[in-house]
Design a protein around this nucleic acid. Sequence first.
DNA 1: TATATTAAATGTATTTTTTACATTTACAAA
DNA 2: TTTGTAAATGTAAAAAATACATTTAATATA
Lengths: 244, 244
Amino acid sequence: MKITSKDSSKKDANMKLQYYQKEDQVLLAVDCIIFGFDKKDLKVLLVKRDFEPEKGKWSLIGGFLKRNENLDEAANRVLNTLTGIKDIYMEQFYTYSEIDRDPGQRTISVAYFALIDVHSHQFDGILIDGAQWFKLNKRPQLIFDHNQMVQKAINRLRRKTQTKPIGFELLPEKFTMRQLQNLYESILDCKLDKRNFINKVNQLDILDKLDEKDMTSSRKGSFLYRFNEKKYKEKLEEGFNFKI
Amino acid sequence: MKITSKDSSKKDANMKLQYYQKEDQVLLAVDCIIFGFDKKDLKVLLVKRDFEPEKGKWSLIGGFLKRNENLDEAANRVLNTLTGIKDIYMEQFYTYSEIDRDPGQRTISVAYFALIDVHSHQFDGILIDGAQWFKLNKRPQLIFDHNQMVQKAINRLRRKTQTKPIGFELLPEKFTMRQLQNLYESILDCKLDKRNFINKVNQLDILDKLDEKDMTSSRKGSFLYRFNEKKYKEKLEEGFNFKI
DNA sequence: TATATTAAATGTATTTTTTACATTTACAAA
DNA sequence: TTTGTAAATGTAAAAAATACATTTAATATA
């Protein structure tokens, strides 16, 4: 019975092949640039590759697309399998297709970037073997075209965080203004004026100021804020534009 | 001899397959959103599909990636084969991978948008059978996820033309200020103030004002301008940012 | 050759946004 | 109670964006 069912599924697959039979097929991979933010530094999660070719070298987290999933699903599966992480912000940004980009075999790779809160509980210590966080400007050389991918991801992140409120994905749910400023300073790689930054963020009017304070950074303590997504979406409908 | 040579090339192909043998392979397509600008209207070039499935319906121009080319090459080849157009501005922007997006067979499609000068000589009359320009807001329903692709391409075009001087790709080499303004008005779908627009463009200081006038639009005639790419690139190096 | 017509060309005052910048405050630790 | 430390706060100046009306150059026509 099992064999029969396998056969019939194969037949289905074959029937679907009727239209474009003569075309070349290729391997499709996904690679993920995983960004994290720790104190004042933007970081990227890399792994030591544990299979050939280029075994032992630093690499992005990646894997192959399977027949029964779309690319977003593949990216999430790969990420989850290799790191245990799930339900995080992820976005496809470019597809790499140079013929010899992967010496193992002709492979086209669709690159994603992901944003995670490094201090979230799903992380607590558990980084898989061979995975390591690197400060962006201290990252090692990567295999294939992965360096290029990281650079393009940084550019995209830089652009997008200025017009969409995705930066909050890199922070804990509750954060101080100073943390938010540090985040933007590290992403944009520049110094920002403290007062102007706070004024600007307050004008956006999409954060809730909490009654809690973070006491780790000073005697006085600094108020915690939380991104109010509902409010943001309401304002969007009214034509509001996020802009840092 | 021919057979031998074929065999050996097959062997080479097989040798390359050693690393990722068990992974699924898929068809990779490219689809092109070709934008043109005519008088006051942004347009898109569509074709009546002449093969199954969905034969006879309106579609983007597309084709399959071949083993011996990268995606940019595929996009250019497909465009050239189907329309005769070559050497134009083209940019990859998103990869579509829903499992049933193409009922013919599982196909992942990498979408490109292209910008052309509708009045350039390589066009002179010769539009292939079944191809037709449509005003953006009067375009027909398209097959598969092509409507989605066009919408995303428009968004990308809108964003990018505001920060990069790619709009000129849609105009003839020499153009009037009014044509340039019409172009931006149609891309951004809004009215712009004539004097402010001219002032802003002049401040950018990347156009050459020619001694020629275009006499078709008025008795007085209006001066022709030309984008000075060299000047633009020099200014870029000095930290200049294009912004309309 | 004078007149009419049409779109092109031009500048400024006002408003809004961005920038630069220094003092006081709240709390914990000594 | 004093001290040290980062947090909190507001305003004036500069720059950028906006709103807006008249004159001009050329052809066509009377």
